[in-house]
Each structure stands twice: as structure tokens, then as C-alpha cells.
Design a protein around this nucleic acid. Sequence first.
DNA 1: GGCAAATGGTTGCATTGGAAACCATCTGCC
DNA 2: GGCAGATGGTTTCCAATGCAACCATTTGCC
Lengths: 160, 160
Amino acid sequence: MSQSLALARFLPYRCNSLARKISVSLSRIYAEKYGLSIPQWRVLVTLAEYGELQASQVTELTSLDKVQVSRAVAGLRERGLLRRRSSERDSRAALLCLSDTGQALFHRIEPEVLAWEQALLAPLEPAEQEVLFALIDRLELRLQDMGLVGDATAGAGRSP
Amino acid sequence: MSQSLALARFLPYRCNSLARKISVSLSRIYAEKYGLSIPQWRVLVTLAEYGELQASQVTELTSLDKVQVSRAVAGLRERGLLRRRSSERDSRAALLCLSDTGQALFHRIEPEVLAWEQALLAPLEPAEQEVLFALIDRLELRLQDMGLVGDATAGAGRSP
DNA sequence: GGCAAATGGTTGCATTGGAAACCATCTGCC
DNA sequence: GGCAGATGGTTTCCAATGCAACCATTTGCC
């Protein structure tokens, strides 16, 4: 029956609150120590994983807005962490990859971040960690189904 | 041992992404249909639940910044959704409660929001829902332990 | 009682973030 | 070939956010 609404038991609130706290805590590493913004950090990780990517691919993989990617790339370029050349195939497209400095920075941060994540997840058994990620997956799928059309990622708008 | 870092399996990213999608989807109800911002919505819920509260108590209960509460209250007051009187005991303190209009608005929105949440959680068995909230609780506790001191909620700063 | 420090709340200011407008290029169609 | 529309990225503008400075009042200490 229609239970009543209390923030403590309201998923949007709890989820937001958790995400916020996680971000604040984690950003101590890459923001305060290394001066990276969240979008910059995500771009860094993604390029470290994939090598060379087009900006549009980065926006898909990071779930960032293309504006955010553009600005993050600009910032990383100013610091010499990222190189950019334009594709011969399509001179609009920019091909992005980490510079040696960028790779080095990533390899310095990565273990710290992984250690932090381990510490956060430490109280959960491995099986519980699986459950957590599985629940997140299912909720995201469910949101997709519920008609959150704007997945904001790729470019392909559906409506005519 | 040291697994490598991939966003798809990185809790801060996944959690942020999920929270964002949830917020976007939910705000269709209270933002687009009723013109409420997120802080306004949270203040509304909290006052609906507790009756009359001081602004400082609202900040604690909602995990909002006191600035956000102040602005949300101003907005709600302009729309006549919320009344405010100053305490006799402490003339600085403001006592807040919903007006009849505010209550009515809340009662109109509440079932829609609850229905939305039901729809979101529908694919999860009740037991799984319990697990989800329990995991969130434990992670928040863990963050507290890990030295995220600034819980940003109450006023009571610890350090001298 | 009176002054220093603390507390409740608001306002100003700088930063951030996203939407929409914008340029450049590419694709498709005639 | 050339023009209309789509696509990749950047810039511009405006709203939201957060910090710090700010009044007003209260508390505590002498």
C-alpha cells in the first residue's frame, strides 16, 4: 500500500547522497593532490585504457557531456598531459591520446585510487561486491526502460 | 593482484552515473510538472514529514547546505508554499512549516513520486531492495570511518 | 551589565555545469 | 559539381552551486 515518503528510505536521495560523499572523498586524491577535475580524471582513465580515441568516443565511454570533454581536453592539453591530432579521414575529428607525461601521471595516480577503492569496499565480501554492481546494472537498465530516453551519450537522437 | 582501472567497474563512476540518471528521471515529476528545484523538493518532503522545523534542522535532515536551504525556503515562500515565523525563544531562528497550499501540493506530488519509485524498484525483489539499502548504509558508514570528516550536514565543526 | 566569541541565517562573489548557438567539415542527393 | 542537412567540436550565455563575508542575536565569562 501507499507507504509514505521519507528521505532516509528514498532511493534517489540515498543514492545521490552516497555518490556525493564518494566523490568528495575520492577527489582528495586526484583533485587536491594532482589538480585534476572530475571530467579530466575520467578522460585520463579512458585514454589510458583505450589508447587513441576520438572525442566523441570519449564522451560515450565517460558519460560526460561533449562540452565537458572539450573543456577537460583543453585543460589536459595545457598541462601537456594529452596530445591531439586531427584525423586524416575527417579533418573535423580530433584524435586524442595521452602524452608520456600523461601516462606517467596516470600510472602514479592509479594505484592510489585503486587502494582507496579497495579500502571503501573492504567491508563487503567479494560476493556482496558482485551483488552491488549487479544491482546498479539492473537499476540502470530499468531506467532505460522507464523512458529515460536522453541517455546523453551518443549523438543519435531518436525522435523525428 | 593490482587489477587495473576501468570505469565500468569503478564504483565512484557507476554510482555517480546511476544517481545522475535517477535524478534526471525523477525531476521530470517535481521539476517539470511542478516547478520545484531539488533542494525545494527536499525541503518540502522534510517539512511534510516533521511539521515545524528550524532551518538548521532542515539542513541536517536533508543533507543540504545551509545556503541551499535558505534559497529553497525563499523560493517556496514566494510561491506561498511555506510559512515562516521567528521563534520566541531565539529571535534569530526561523520556524518553518508548510502552508495549506504547500501541504496540498505535497499530497498531490507524493503519490506520483512513490509510484515512480515503485516502478524503478519493480524489477528487484523485496529482499533485494533490502540488500540495496543495507549496502548503501554500510558504504556510507565506511566512508565516515575512512575519514571523510566533513559530513557537511550539521553545524558542529569538530576541529578547534 | 558588558564585551568576546559562537550561532542562525542571508547575501555577494567566484566557479562550475549544461543548453543552445556557432563554425567547420562531411555526406547525400539532384 | 553544388546545395541541404547532418556531424564533430568549440564558444557563449545563463542558471545552479559553494565559499566566504556579512548582519543579528544569543551565550558565556569577567
